[in-house]
């Protein structure tokens, strides 16, 4: 069973979101997603200062046999990207909720709508196993 930290919010499309003290959000892909994809070999990150709508394609993660789009869980502006991933995409496999974060985004709306709690996301993962 993959790990789903209680402190984070999630999207149906397997992104996690962490609300930071400076009101910015850190976004990554979940442990479940990285397990399904397998060893990652490449990450395409958004450009700094780019604006994205909720659900818009914002990044791509690639394994040997699959490439998956990452969708922006909120609408906002990209303020930081994890450049370490460009050389070391395996960080997502090794530490999806830590060193494997993808980008930080400044949300346009202060309230986080439509995101899932850890429990709700666990149900999504469980339902996919069938």
């Amino acid at each position: 069973m993959s790990s789903v930290p209680k402190s984070l919010k999630y999207s149906n499309s397997h992104e996690w979101v962490r609300q930071d003290e400076d009101d910015l959000l850190t976004v990554g892909v979940t442990d479940h997603a990285q397990t399904m994809l397998g060893d990652l070999v490449y990450v395409e990150l958004p450009e700094l200062e780019g604006s994205f709508e909720t659900g818009q394609e914002v990044a791509v993660v690639e394994s040997v046999k699959a490439a998956a789009d990452v969708y922006s869980p909120v609408s906002g502006e990209i303020v930081e990207i994890n450049e370490l991933l460009l050389e070391n995409p395996q960080l997502i496999n090794e530490d999806p909720y830590g060193k494997g974060w993808l980008f930080r985004i400044r949300p346009f709306e202060s309230e986080l709508k439509d995101l899932l709690s850890a429990d709700e996301y666990s149900k999504v993962v469980a339902s996919e196993a069938h």
Binding site: V41, E62, S63, K65, A66, A67
Partner: peptide
């Protein structure tokens, strides 16, 4: 670099 190819990426 096959993940960019049509048999995996299809429409993309």
């Amino acid at each position: 670099l096959q993940a960019r190819e049509q048999h995996i990426r299809r429409a993309k």
